[in-house]
Design a protein around this nucleic acid. Sequence first.
DNA 1: CGCGTCCTTGAACCGCGTCAAGCCAGGTGG
DNA 2: CCACCTGGCTTGACGCGGTTCAAGGACGCG
Lengths: 233, 233
Amino acid sequence: MRKVISCIDCEVSECMVKKFCNSEWVEKISEGKQTVFYKSGQHIVYENNPVMGLYFIQSGKAKIFSTGIYGKTQVVRLTKASDIIGHRGFGGELYPIGAVAVENSYICFVDNDFIYKAFMANPKFTFGLMMYYSKELRNSEAKIKNLAQMNVKEKVVDAILYADSVFNEDNNSKVITLNRKDLADLSGINAAQLSRILSELKSENLLRVEINEVEILNSEGMQAIVDPFYKTY
Amino acid sequence: MRKVISCIDCEVSECMVKKFCNSEWVEKISEGKQTVFYKSGQHIVYENNPVMGLYFIQSGKAKIFSTGIYGKTQVVRLTKASDIIGHRGFGGELYPIGAVAVENSYICFVDNDFIYKAFMANPKFTFGLMMYYSKELRNSEAKIKNLAQMNVKEKVVDAILYADSVFNEDNNSKVITLNRKDLADLSGINAAQLSRILSELKSENLLRVEINEVEILNSEGMQAIVDPFYKTY
DNA sequence: CGCGTCCTTGAACCGCGTCAAGCCAGGTGG
DNA sequence: CCACCTGGCTTGACGCGGTTCAAGGACGCG
């Protein structure tokens, strides 16, 4: 657990603020932000509530999800340190996206007015955010295609590889710590089916399967399953 | 058919350029852009090709799609005048998104270098684009949920209402001109199934169904079918 | 030790995708 | 002017994959 720290001392080198704002504004934002600790499982943003600003993840991980009919949940995105939560919701728009920490996290909040001023004063900051959203949009559109075309096994493999790419980008671990429900919600299938597929992948020596976590044992083998969807001809 | 015109004379009031750039830059962009005419059915952007800049739709409509395994196509987005095509792809990144005109269109192209300079000089322009991508991301994430949870009928109704909201935002028509294949690709289902559902919706007097087009006869009735997915509790 | 929670596995059902045949309209050529 | 062909659309029959429901097992906690 890390203490709340100012932007100046923060080591999250990929944070948009440090990366793109001039030193004057790094300082201002550091003054104006609120850094809050969220326990694993705690809500960061509630669905259908107005979003009053932007959340920058300083440490930890979170899932972004949307609850559908009959309480069925779809995880639409995973986030880690240096990622951003809270699509710009100026004017207090409501939308049905929630965020929950999946491990203990420190998250910096900057309200709409403040961030708008930062945008106007730091074109590169705005540009960086724009590129970030643009990239997320590409990912999201790819996921639309995948959900529409993949079978369950491919969906599960895709979800695991995605989770690995987000959570283990900068460590050399291949462990994904998510419970079955979250993994099922990310894959877009039900937990029973997920269980079957995990057993299958385990028997193929592609995965190590434990309670609350899976570990990729054979990245190439996993990749091969979804490859046809990413190969460009 | 409209003649190629400069930004200064352009009547697309929602165009990001006119909306957010100062007059000096509107003029510069007007000089630097290339406006091209695309016939209905013609490719604007090819999948897996580098994107060298941004496309602003001056008039017409286009579908944004991605081709998956075995040539299966998923339409991820529809666009009309004032919309933007070509998620920022600096460094000539490749990604599997294509765009095809679905009616005769004039489209303005601005290359990456040029647009970057415009961004740096017009913070509000960058901000506007950022908000645009952010909104599209929200839509895209909603679609992920829908594809994962809706049954075929709901998917079709959702797709039709979406197409109507994009294409008929500013006219008072309820006609959607798309062939069965495109509508199926947008819904994320196959053409045979789509056909069945359309017949069903027709027999319920919700739709008028013709070759290459459908017309919404009862918006409330259509809305009611997908309502549970959008209602916030 | 017993209870609750999470996970696994089996069995049955059914929605949807696939395949194929038939239909209709428009275009072409004899 | 009609016969034929082609391509998009519709409809039926069938089978598979995936969801659902339920029972049983593993583990952690009080």
